[in-house]
């Protein structure tokens, strides 16, 4: 321990990675590897994260078929395209919408879609709430339970082929 560069050469107190001893202000000679590691770590963190971000930003969310969903896909960010099979359940909190829930069938299987509060309120504000029979394209996070129940927590929902046209962009 006393041989370590983590100890101040002057007062012999433990100073860790500090270049100057905080107790006596003596210059502590750090091994080259520590200095290089600092620079390498900072570069790797900032540059690596920038490229990772650009890569993620420019990637498309993978489209999966409901029949192909496996438990290993739990938490996966995916897109599902299908038709709403039932009446849309709207859970309200007072006057405001809390969330929407409905089942989507894409021909290979069926899953429950839960639309978050923010997305649901956005859809309601734009008079774009989905209805039974609408063809939708939903992106979100999969949740697969041990009982085989599949749910999609939706982050983005597009009604691509509405059954009842409205005056808005639908």
């Amino acid at each position: 321990m006393t041989q370590s560069s983590a100890v101040c050469p002057s007062c012999e107190r433990f100073i860790g990675p500090a270049d100057v001893c905080p107790y006596c202000e003596a210059e502590a000679d750090k091994p080259a590897i520590v200095r290089r590691l600092r620079v390498a770590a900072l570069l790797l963190a900032v540059v690596g994260l920038t490229f990772l971000y650009l890569m993620a930003r420019n990637a498309d969310t993978p489209v999966v078929r409901i029949g192909d969903v496996t438990p290993m896909m739990n938490f996966a960010g995916v897109r599902i395209a299908g038709t709403i099979k039932n009446n849309v359940y709207i859970k309200r909190q007072g006057e405001e919408i809390d969330y929407l829930s409905f089942y989507v069938d894409d021909g290979t299987g069926e899953l429950q879609v839960q639309v978050s509060r923010e997305t649901a309120r956005e859809l309601a504000a734009g008079n774009r709430l989905p209805e039974k029979g609408d063809r939708v394209d939903v992106a979100g996070t999969l949740n697969v339970s041990g009982e085989g129940k599949i749910r999609l927590r939706t982050l983005r929902l597009d009604v691509v082929n509405p059954t009842t046209p409205t005056p808005t962009s639908r």
């Binding site: 963190a45 900032v46 994260l49 990772l52 993620a56 990637a59 969310t61 960010g77 999969l142």
Partner: peptide, 24 residues
């Protein structure tokens, strides 16, 4: 902040294959 930014990338647009998403 850097770790948080990484967390956002992994939670919203993870580059990991969907077949290994449970270990995202």
């Amino acid at each position: 902040l850097l770790a948080g930014f990484l967390g956002f990338i992994l939670l919203y647009r993870s580059p990991i294959s969907v077949t290994a998403a449970f270990q995202n």
